[in-house]
Computed example of a mutant assay.
Amino acid sequence: MKKLKILFFVLLLIELNVPTYAQKGFGVILKAGQKYEDGQYKKALKLLAKAERMDYGFCGNAWEGSERAINLLRTKIYINQENYQLARKCLNSIGLEYKGDNLDSIRIRTYQMEYGKDSLSNMIDLSFNNTKVVCRENDFFVIIPLTNGEKIELKINPIFNFDLIHMDDENEKVAKWIGSFKESENYKLIQERDLHRSSVKPHDDNY
């Protein structure tokens, strides 16, 4: 649970630098994290819903920090509940991804737990030719249709992929993404084999 503890430490630092009324919201998020640690997921989600409605003042960093913390914790809860679609929806709700976040690695893990690791790897390799890059509400996604009728969505960070998202030719854009993706750690993650749902522990530090 190292990453969650780091998250709480960051939240505490944020609390020290925002007005009192904003600190109350972060305090509620911290309480939700404690409920999560205790396995009380319903109470944690209720507290997160309350935190989402609270006032974080005029500081954009405070609002951004609260949004990230709320959605990351919701993601963890939904993974533990095996509600992988809601987990990915929460990840997609995080407005700004930092370079070191690699939230796609969490998305990939949820697909692996949902479909099975070997099946996902095989389906993606068969589906690369049908990949599309789309823009949805100012967010950029790669859509990979799978042979089982489902689809995989991975998010493109526009800050670190500026040239790619501004390419005019859609085929060249897709080809550039596929080339880059096949050299990435996330593709290596997809290529891992023989990991079944029962062996993937939602409390792993990868989450």
Rank of each mutant, 00 (worst) to 15 (best):
R74F: 14
M54C: 01
N71C: 00
C59A: 14
Y78S: 06
L47R: 11
Y56A: 04
W63P: 03
N71V: 03
M54R: 03
A62R: 06
S66M: 13
L47T: 02
L48N: 05
K50E: 05
L73H: 05
R68P: 00
R53S: 10
K35V: 01
A49V: 12
F58L: 09
A69G: 09
I79T: 14
Y78N: 12
Y56R: 15
I70C: 02
E37F: 09
Y78D: 06
D38C: 01
Y78L: 10
I77G: 07
I77E: 03
E67Q: 08
I70F: 10
K35T: 02
I79F: 06
L73N: 05
A49L: 14
E37R: 13
K43V: 14
R68V: 11
S66H: 12
Q40H: 04
C59W: 01
E67H: 06
E52T: 02
W63N: 15
L48S: 09
Y56I: 08
S66N: 08
D38N: 13
L48E: 00
L72G: 00
I70A: 13
N71T: 00
L47H: 10
N71M: 02
I77R: 07
D38Q: 11
N61G: 06
A44F: 02
W63A: 15
G65S: 04
R53P: 00
L72V: 09
I70K: 06
Y41C: 00
L47F: 11
L72A: 03
K35R: 12
M54Q: 09
D55A: 01
I77F: 05
L48Q: 08
